[in-house]
């Protein structure tokens, strides 16, 4: 089932995960939705923005506070209302027997949803969750989770790449799934390629329609809302990956 029109939902639980991310659990379910897909969340009279699903039954979203819209979402309390449509886009495809999940910031939320799905399919998952420091770390996934911080305030000191190198030195993974800052994902993908693993990543671009018509969310000739947001190695040769983002007017902005 895809909600083509926004449907009203009530916040059943609002949990602050760290100093910037709040996870909202809603009173509606999207049972067919898969990790990597997103919904358009609408606050009537204000704005509507894309958010990755952090869970589907019930719907969960993890919101990182960064501007006017995300601040309002993070301010919602139990009983608060928001409207959602979706799920949209292509989500992760679970493949292989042993998988590695590499996330940064709120990007770790869809990977936790993926870890839950992997568990159901008896696929062994290991996760790496990175942040600048302890106060920005996310809650662990339902699989073995390693934490890294740039300043060493929690987990392994260093970035997710070092932790990933460490894991690959000891074991083999069939597929690496990554979500987080674009340059981080680019580095993760290149490392995965070197290690001869498959790779899937989740891209973000400014979205307007969210359904593949307007063209605003383009990364090169790919539409993030329609062809993605899950992409693979083909992104490494996309002329705009890790380079160009388009703002609300469509101006090119360097990443």
């Amino acid at each position: 089932m895809i909600l083509m029109l926004p449907q009203v939902a009530t916040v059943a639980k609002a949990e602050k995960e760290n100093s910037t991310v709040t996870t909202l659990t809603l009173n509606i379910s999207l049972p067919r939705a898969i990790p990597g897909q997103f919904v358009m969340a609408w606050l009537p009279g204000f704005d509507e923005k894309p958010l990755s699903l952090a869970g589907a039954s019930p719907v969960k979203i993890s919101v990182g506070e960064r501007g006017p819209f995300s601040s309002r979402l993070c301010g919602l309390k139990k009983g608060g209302k928001l409207w959602v449509r979706g799920p949209y886009g292509r989500g992760f495809e679970l493949e292989g027997k042993k998988i590695l999940l590499v996330g940064g910031g709120y990007g770790f939320a869809p990977l936790r949803f993926l870890a839950d799905q992997a568990r159901k399919k008896k696929i062994t998952a290991t996760a790496i969750c990175g942040a600048r420091s302890k106060s920005l770390l996310m809650a662990p996934a339902s699989c073995k989770t390693l934490f890294t911080t740039d300043d060493g305030s929690a987990g392994i000191k260093g970035n997710v790449l070092a932790a990933m190198e460490g894991l690959f030195a000891r074991e083999k993974f069939d597929t690496v799934y990554t979500c987080g800052p674009e340059r981080m994902m680019g580095s993760v993908a290149r490392l995965a390629k070197k290690k001869k693993a498959d790779c899937q990543l989740l891209l973000e671009r400014y979205m307007k329609c969210g359904i593949g018509v307007c063209g605003h969310c383009a990364c090169g000739d790919r539409l993030v809302c329609f062809d993605g947001p899950r992409f693979g190695y083909e992104m490494l040769s996309n002329p705009e990956f890790e380079r160009v983002w388009r703002d609300k007017a469509g101006h090119k902005v360097p990443i």
Binding site: K208, C209, G210, I211, C214, A249, H251
Partner: peptide, 28 residues
Amino acid sequence: APREGHNNPTMINTPEAMLNAIGLSNPG
């Protein structure tokens, strides 16, 4: 001149028709 266009929702696909108000966003 560049235009940011309207806030979202800028487009919906309803059972009867598609409807949009992008607001002519473009970089100029």
